[in-house]
Design a protein around this nucleic acid. Structure first.
Lengths: 165, 165
DNA sequence: TGTATATAGGACTAAAATGGTCCTATTATG
DNA sequence: CATAATAGGACCATTTTAGTCCTATATACA
């Protein structure tokens, strides 16, 4: 499914909620009510987001959470990474690969490129985008051009993958 | 992590192996040795791929698996979907949403757009791309322009998300 | 026609990840 | 000093995933 975890989903919802009132401080209890999710769970995601540096926190009376920077400077991948760790589609996607099958694999480097492309895409989506509840539908030019991929035409010749069709 | 399951990873490796010799039929045992993975597991993924229509199978002596269509007509999302089901980043990404929080959520429609964009990206990557073991690094223009997203500039004004920064 | 070689389908188990709750600090306000 | 908030982490139940294995079915060919 290539699915985000529920907690990541909650995180996005909560972040969006905060982004809509960035000037004030938001307590876990308040946010839980707003997004209609159990308080302990909301609290847990808030802690994770704060530890990742996306939220600042204030303890004590009148405390709570605020965005650490503007919503347009927080990306979807920031939020995902805060909850699930770095975005990597495969085991070997991250640099310090310890997959002993790396050599016999044959697709590793290309999966890494795909992973990179997905990462770039998710970088380009901001919390400001997500928080907008009544979106204007405008095409957005994504900076995918910077991601390199093998060219299909070149592949087919050496391996003759097209022959059987 | 937004990670693919191991089986999906195996599936990609096995498909790539087959794609490199598309004219011949490949038995599970042979493929398992080539990719150095346990036979039952490889067998399982092959069955899934066949059931999804990406491979054709032949039983009996001299039987085995072949690509159902050319490698350039099989996409990464085909492979992912064969193992993990349809690509959907969030619970509510697929049409028949039954998330009771949909209304209070506030980010649903935009996550759906992001999910769509990731799907489009994965559609544009073919097995021919993946199978190429020594990739030529060429920029590829992805058809992401067709995916609509909320415009950040428009978001910031109504909710004043930029004010606090 | 029988035997060997394949895949098909699904049951089953063990291990890991996830979701969710709760408890005990710590910090800040007034 | 009491109250209200976050910090950190322990803990458990549930679900998902990985992996194996068994039985049935189909095909080739001697």
């Amino acid at each position: 499914m290539l699915k985000l975890s529920k907690l990541t989903d909650y995180a996005a919802v909560v972040m969006a909620q905060i982004a809509r009132h960035p000037e004030q401080s938001h307590a876990a209890t308040e946010l839980a009510e707003k997004v209609r999710l159990p308080r302990p769970t909301v609290s847990k995601t808030l802690k994770m987001l704060a530890r990742a540096g996306l939220l600042t926190s204030q303890r004590g009376v009148q405390g709570g959470y605020q965005l650490a920077r503007s919503a347009s400077r927080i990306s979807a991948s920031d939020i995902i990474a805060a909850i699930e760790g770095p975005i990597a589609m495969t085991e070997c996607s991250h640099a310090d690969g310890e997959c002993e099958l790396f050599n016999s694999c044959g697709v590793a480097s290309n999966w890494q490129r795909v992973s990179l492309a997905v990462g770039t895409l998710l970088d380009s989506v901001t919390l400001a985008h997500l928080a907008q509840s009544n979106p204007i539908k405008l095409p957005v030019q994504l900076p995918i051009q910077s991601v390199t991929l093998a060219e299909a035409v070149e592949v087919e010749h050496p391996f003759e993958v097209e022959k059987d069709y």
